[in-house]
């Protein structure tokens, strides 16, 4: 396993090369992710959202922003249930995402599936399912298609949880990618719990990153609540993958501050020690990044509002848009099961 310390000199460089405009954009994206979560929890609580679960991502914002910010427009991502803002960072509109949450006709799935089970291949967003490990294997296929097209430098960032690394498809996918040196970056969001099951009952090694050894690929275990650490590691991984050296596994150590989903808030404070939750509240990535920005000397306090109110307004407008947009017609439930558009006389 490679650690950051080994390449410390190099990894520091990446985030220090960012322009002031980048720093502001990153700050705003972190807040977008935070507000997205807060406002959907609120909508569920107040009964504005009546169907489906809200899977919280509070505390995991640095991972979403840090892993997507250095991507090229033609790279691929396959976000999972705690990465909803990634859809927006990669080109979906907030309105589209909210229509998906509310199960509306305009949603990318036309109301067929819920929450994060959506994608858009034109934006390079690969559709994931509830079987998180299985998407790692599907990602290999997307990359295989690029190989057939002579586009070996397009990277796919596949998100997964520490729990999903226990699945067979995770193994088959990473193994296949490693054997064929596919530019796959597996981001394991190790938030310590798979629903109620703690990481030590999912993974036998001290870190998830150690799994990388078995595939002969680099594995990083980093502080997932530190934007700069995530960003730097991601830049390094991208260079590795684009150069044709094969996949990289990045374990972002973080913590699920909420329940598995909004229905789980009470029990999530029973199956975990409350002190543990309080400890991780103090490691909140947002104040940490704000402090970093102030320490650079490039910003006045007033330039870094908590929160940026225009983002809140943007999300609220998208929620209102979704609530007021039409429901799918019942008969459309039988559409899109088969595609007969191609016929057989291609």
């Amino acid at each position: 396993m490679r650690t950051r310390r080994k390449n410390g000199q190099q990894t520091v460089a990446y985030h220090q090369r960012l322009e002031k405009s980048d720093l502001i954009e990153i700050y705003r994206r972190l807040w977008f992710a935070r507000l997205f979560d807060e406002m959907l929890y609120d909508a569920k609580k107040k009964g504005r959202l009546r169907r489906g679960n809200v899977y919280g991502s509070r505390g995991q914002e640095a991972i979403m922003v840090g892993t997507t910010y250095p991507l090229r427009p033609d790279d691929f991502v396959s976000p999972i249930h705690r990465d909803m803002p990634v859809f927006v960072f990669r080109g979906m509109t907030v309105e589209q995402v909210m229509c998906q949450v509310w199960g509306k006709a305009e949603a990318p799935t036309r109301g067929k599936d819920s929450w994060s089970h959506m994608g858009d291949m034109n934006l390079g967003i690969v559709h994931s399912t509830s079987m998180l490990g299985s998407t790692i294997a599907v990602a290999c296929g997307v990359l295989w298609a690029q190989r057939l097209d002579g586009r070996r430098d397009r990277v796919l960032v596949a998100y997964t949880g520490e729990g999903a690394t226990a699945t067979g498809p995770f193994h088959e996918g990473v193994n296949f990618a490693a054997v064929h040196k596919l530019p796959l970056i597996v981001v394991v969001e190790n938030n310590q719990y798979a629903y109620s099951t703690p990481v030590e009952l999912e993974v036998p090694t001290k870190t998830v990153a150690e799994r990388a050894k078995g595939y002969g690929i680099p594995g990083y275990s980093i502080d997932g609540n530190d934007f700069n650490a995530v960003y730097d590691t991601m830049c390094e991984a991208l260079a590795h993958a684009r150069a044709g050296n094969g996949p990289v596994l990045i374990e972002c150590v973080t913590y699920r501050l909420q329940g598995h989903a909004d229905h789980d808030e009470t029990r999530a404070r029973q199956y975990r020690p409350v002190e543990e939750i309080e400890l991780w509240e103090k490691r909140d990535p947002l104040p940490r990044y704000r402090e970093y920005l102030l320490n650079t000397g490039l910003f006045e306090e007033s330039e870094l509002p908590t929160p940026p109110l225009d983002i809140k307004l943007q999300i609220e407008q998208a929620i209102a848009y979704a609530i007021n947009s039409p429901d799918p017609e019942p008969h459309t439930a039988l559409e899109d099961i088969y595609d007969e558009s191609a016929g057989v006389s291609l």
Partner: peptide
Amino acid sequence: APISETAIIAVCVGAAAAGKRG
């Protein structure tokens, strides 16, 4: 392919999403 029926079918699925016919 390695002995990985999941991956074998999944590679076809992912490649199909990206325009191929596996």
